[in-house]
């Protein structure tokens, strides 16, 4: 096992390093602002006192490397500083919204992952049939549609015209779990549509790839029944690609959520990020970007580690 362990550790280290570089990138990008953050936030009409006050508040009088270390050490414990616009704590603003976003992504994932994998496997087994071609066209269409197109179609037909589901995903305190599910059904469905299409195609491709391996042919030539070929010979080798597909799409869900949240006016971190970008509220932008990037990197990391752990060649070294 030590071989696997060292590979996993190496991969983890690489993930951390990437995250560190990304944090420098996110911090450094803001440093590239013409003027500084205070000028950008307050705009042209700012007085010298206002600027100075804001600079002091944001600690802009310090040199960049020190501010970076401050920012990073804060970020590690969840302290992202103070919003340049509202003056509220960034962490407090982001906290509940991040939970909402995670809820929405989880909601979509719970529906999308099983559906997509089952459909993907079915389509792979039925490849080159009519069903496969129809599925190909349908998934391509779904992938090609911008999220807001799907979202507005769903609003138009499932909410405005038929009134089955609420169009706006406003959340209140004290909603029951069932109400919550009902409120967020349309945004979740929008994401499910896109993600299922992506996942189905990826699952199909990796299963077909797998079924073309010589050992699958060998199993068939040994007279193994079809179901056993799949369960005993294909599946143990399919974990890596399947884990990979799931992780990539979860990562996609986390970021694809931005547009969906805006369409459905859902109080998540994506909408917050868009607002912050328009208002040029840099501490919030930095925090949001770091959170998104970290989630993305972690999921990719999880996929790679999963692939390593399920690889028989690595599990049983020479």
């Amino acid at each position: 096992m030590s071989g696997v362990l060292s590979i996993v550790l190496k991969r983890l280290g690489l993930g951390l390093l990437t995250l560190l570089i990304i944090s420098i990138l996110i911090f450094g990008a803001v440093e590239m602002l013409p003027g500084d953050m205070a000028e950008a936030v307050l705009g042209q009409g700012a007085t010298a006192e206002n600027l100075a006050a804001l600079r002091a508040q944001m600690g802009l009088d310090q040199p960049a490397p020190i501010r970076y270390l401050d920012w990073l050490s804060g970020a590690v414990v969840g302290d992202f500083g103070i919003s340049a616009v509202s003056g509220a704590s960034v962490a407090e603003t982001i906290g509940p919204r991040f939970r909402n976003t995670l809820f929405l992504a989880a909601y979509a994932a719970v529906i999308a992952v099983p559906v997509a994998i089952i459909l993907g496997v079915v389509v792979a087994l039925l490849r080159d049939t009519l069903f496969d071609r129809v599925a190909n066209v349908a998934t391509l269409t779904s992938i090609s549609s911008p999220e807001f197109f799907l979202g507005y179609i769903l609003i138009l037909y499932l909410s405005v015209k038929t009134g089955m589901f609420p169009a706006i995903a406003k959340l209140n305190d004290g909603m029951t779990f069932f109400e919550l599910l009902d409120r967020t059904f349309l945004p979740a469905l929008t994401m499910v549509l896109v993600v299922v299409a992506h996942m189905m195609r990826m699952t199909r491709a990796s299963i077909i790839n797998l079924l073309a391996s010589p050992y699958i042919e060998m199993a068939r030539l040994k007279g193994t029944p079809a179901w056993k070929v799949i369960v005993k010979h294909a599946l143990p080798n399919a974990w890596a690609p399947i884990i990979n597909v799931i992780a990539l799409n979860l990562a996609y869900l986390i970021t694809g959520v931005v547009l969906v949240e805006v369409v459905f006016v859902y109080p998540g971190i994506g909408q917050l990020l868009v607002d912050a970008v328009t208002k040029r509220d840099f501490p919030v932008v930095q925090a949001c970007c770091l959170i998104f990037a970290a989630t993305f990197i972690l999921l990719n990391l999880a996929a790679d580690v999963g692939a390593i752990l399920t690889n028989p060649r690595l599990r049983h070294p020479k």
Binding site: Y215, E217, M218, L221, K232, H233, P312
Partner: peptide, 16 residues
């Protein structure tokens, strides 16, 4: 009827 393939390395299932 049994079959012996060209590449044994690829024709044995790596997972078993």
């Amino acid at each position: 009827i049994a079959y012996v393939a060209q590449s044994a390395a690829a024709s044995f299932n790596p997972a078993h």
